[in-house]
Design a protein around this nucleic acid. Structure first.
Lengths: 245, 245
DNA sequence: TCTCTTCCGTGAGCAGTGCTCTTGCTTTGC
DNA sequence: GCAAAGCAAGAGCACTGCTCACGGAAGAGA
């Protein structure tokens, strides 16, 4: 019984390949479970091997080494987080209400992070000592940022964004040229005002900084309710971006 | 030859105790050197033992365990960073120029971080898996924040801070009560406006977030000159706080 | 159906880790 | 001068990432 939907030449989906894929998936799942408990740096390949009922060396049939396992996890997590933010933002019915869309996206970032502390550490915590993230990870990583930028871009197109009190200091245009090319290449804003780019970058920094502070305990004894605090921050950032209130 | 300056009863500064102190210091120094290379999670007690020319078990005479070593390093680094920021801020001659004082303090944060990447990871990166920072560390950690708050407080006392466009959303007062008590207890601002506290907290989050982004490589291909970018961010935060331009 | 190749799991092994414990030596205090 | 205390060494335990030779199983081609 042949599978006509997928050509066997390009992807020979034999039973063997399927089993291999399933086991690889099982290994990744076990690794993510371990991740939540001990953190990325302490991720033990032997431990995940035990969890899936294998001997440690057998895992190397499926995963090249520990770094490759980390990379796979990073890509998976970035994608999951990106999807969560995309869904949350897309769920806002009133597309003209950019403030709600911004808040929904930001909240989704925090919600996912709080419910996935181990994964958050992997993505936005200290890089694992000997590990250097390969280029494969930067594309999934941008997915989340694109949602935020898209909201800002929409608000900008509507003309709802007031002039952003430009502080004259050198050529901002050149400084954030990379970021402007980034959004331009994705067809979001053709010729973004540097002011807007700077504000958006700062906002994204503050969003992630706020979540990091909460996750890593730097907010203890300072703010009573982290969730409410995050909302305050997110709304103020929206106001700073000219898309709030 | 007795040392009259220090009473021998409370601190018996014998030659032995001095030698012990010196070796402990040497161990800490070696650990910090290792820190810069491999990061906190990979800090190997055996490696620092080799560096100081000891066998691994010998260091346990001076350091209780790896966590205690980390704690000592954290306290040391927080103090060093705090001192660096204090000095930089104090070096601004014109005390009325709050903007320059703010910028100097912020710049000192970044400069220290960039020149001490390993230590920065230790302080503001992912907490080491099995390690929980003891209460001894929170006091040194606040030292740096106090400098920033003091600048804001001075600006506030001068009355130079304009009304901060309050976005009405629940009772901010209760939300940031911890932070307000914090500054009040240190005699900085007696009855700080919640608006100001919120802004200052956000600014501090953004400052550290910006440095973290740079240090952990999340700013790659986005901003051409991290140092110039940091200045832009810091100055804009000052403007948001009402102490800039 | 038979063979041959490819794949997979096992277990031993190497070098490294944190940490404990015993042993012997040196230094200190009386 | 001697007992006590402190110190460095080394063996040892359980753990880590990773490699490699081995035997078995499963699929592919004839």
């Amino acid at each position: 019984m042949r599978d006509v939907t997928s050509p066997p030449a390009s992807t020979p989906r034999t039973a063997r390949a399927l089993a291999r894929e399933a086991i690889t998936h099982e290994i990744l799942a076990a690794a993510r479970a371990r991740l939540a408990e001990d953190g990325p740096a302490a991720l033990s390949l032997r431990a995940v091997a035990r969890d899936v009922g294998m001997v440690s060396s057998a895992v190397y049939r499926y995963v090249e080494n520990r770094d490759a396992l980390l990379t796979a996890l990073i890509v998976e997590c970035y994608d999951e987080l990106g999807a969560a933010v995309e869904d949350a933002e897309a769920a806002v019915a009133d597309r003209a209400d950019v403030t709600s869309r911004w808040l929904a996206a930001c909240r989704a970032v925090r919600t996912w992070s709080v419910t996935h502390p181990g994964e958050f550490r992997l993505l936005y915590g200290t890089p694992v000592p000997g590990y250097a993230a390969p280029p494969d990870t930067i594309d999934p990583a941008t997915r989340l940022v694109l949602v935020l930028v898209a909201v800002v871009a929409d608000a900008h197109d509507d003309g709802a964004v007031p002039p952003l009190s430009p502080t004259a200091q050198g050529d901002l245009t050149e400084l954030v040229a990379g970021a402007r090319d980034f959004v331009a290449a994705r067809g979001l804003i053709e010729d973004a005002p540097p002011e807007l780019v700077v504000r958006t970058l700062m906002a994204w920094t503050t969003v992630l900084g706020t979540v990091s502070f909460e996750m890593f305990g730097h907010l203890a004894n300072t703010v009573s309710d982290p969730e409410a605090w995050f909302d305050v921050v997110a709304l103020r950032l929206a106001a700073d971006l000219g898309i709030g209130l």
